[in-house]
Design a protein around this nucleic acid. Structure first.
Lengths: 239, 239
DNA sequence: TAGTGGTCTAGACCACTCA
DNA sequence: GAGTGGTCTAGACCACTAC
């Protein structure tokens, strides 16, 4: 059960940076020194450092060295949607997930198009409202192809669906595409959320693909305007 | 003036995929075959393929090979904000950039905090409204540290500021962080944009850092709700 | 000039997929 | 068992930074 060397180096440094043991501006040992210290080759060290670089932990400057970046200024997560759990944790506020619906039903026209499947193909539908501080502010509508996810339940939906898919079902998720826009709120939004006066809602459409490039999940995450936040971190790409 | 081998391979394949010469599902030659074809080593080929993989051009599956992904389903750009120019191009609609202001002025309290500089430090401010189909729908407010960007003008602001910074001034941009949220629209928004009835506006805050980790630019891009769109593409990370 | 990261090589062994 | 991508090695030369 030996871990890859480069992942080991990556994990050690990311943890140290994350925990504050390595302060921003600190210069890391040179690649040659690290190779010697970890008793490995320089290319393997570079693999680890490039991961740290891409994820925003360090900066690499030719001729100078690698330096720890200030991630506290970045307020985590470095990239992606502020998840429901993180938002609740940050606020230190009481939070709940309310499973409204978990049913297997034939896909309608709109959904069939989103999931790129024939009309009326059976699809698992999971609808959950997210509540923070007694207010329902996010509506998550998940749809799964039933030929790939044969079974779901309210119990699974209350926990982590992803752990179920990856660990229990062994599905290999390869990539996902998010599409963010703002749209007029629907009657359903008003029924299931505490929308207050807001006439519009932030819609995050998420398309999840397996390793074999099959689109198996479509998720619509609908956020009340005032509680929405998204963070994106990008390294400059040369070309 | 020899281009890196791995970038050459990357460019050839990304162009072929982009232009449709290589159809989705096509299997690329194996890494060993590519190494021989390009008269290089396998590790160099892998560098090119991993770039293609990270950018969503191909899928790599252990034991099977590398396959072209369907990027048309992703509607470009694969990631990031739909830029003003792309939006205009997609719509095939007439568009304009209206430079409202280009001045050097001392930073107020809010801006000094955003740029992490002392109060009243001189800062270049550029305000531009973006018009598509006769409607002003985006307000871009750019702020640059004047010790790093000593001069700006309305002429530069009308063209590409980034080309000016990178080519003319030789600034090395390292990374940027975006923060997206929705906020009540201000009096300035209403004055400079055609906001219609909308009471809220999508705010994209962009923090741009140089290679030496100095934050030198802060941009606020304010989008009318109904015209905003953001796309995010993410590979699944193992850990 | 010494030290750094960026590119590249020519091998090697492994884990996985598929016929 | 043949072929594939994933990891790793022990070198090499180069471009850039700093002193």
């Amino acid at each position: 059960m030996r871990e890859n060397i480069y992942l080991q180096i990556y994990n050690e440094y990311s943890n140290q940076i994350h925990s504050g043991q390595l302060l921003p501006g600190t210069k890391l040992p040179s690649e040659s020194e690290l190779a010697e210290a970890y008793n490995t080759s320089r290319e393997t060290v570079r693999k680890a450092l490039n991961l740290l670089f891409r994820e925003g932990y360090i900066n690499k400057i030719k001729g100078r060295g690698s330096f720890v970046l200030d991630m506290t200024r970045m307020d985590f997560p470095v990239t992606g949607l502020i998840s429901f759990k993180e938002m609740a944790d940050t606020l230190g506020a009481p939070s709940r997930t309310l499973v409204e619906e978990t049913v297997l039903e034939p896909a309608g026209a709109a959904l069939a198009r989103q999931l790129q499947i024939p009309l009326d193909t059976p699809v698992w539908k999971v609808i959950r409202a997210r509540e923070i501080e007694e207010e329902r502010i996010i509506l998550d509508k998940d749809f799964f192809r039933s030929d790939i996810v044969p079974f779901l339940s309210a119990e699974i939906a209350e926990g982590s669906i992803y752990e179920y898919l990856e660990v229990k079902l062994g599905l290999k998720i390869s990539y996902a595409k998010k599409l963010i826009s703002v749209e007029p709120s629907t009657e359903e939004d008003h029924r299931l959320l505490d929308l207050k006066k807001y006439t519009h809602i932030v819609v995050v459409r998420n398309y999840v693909y397996l390793e074999n490039t099959v689109l198996f999940q479509y998720t619509e995450s609908r956020h009340r305007l005032d509680k929405f936040q998204f963070v994106d971190f990008a390294r400059r790409v040369r070309r």
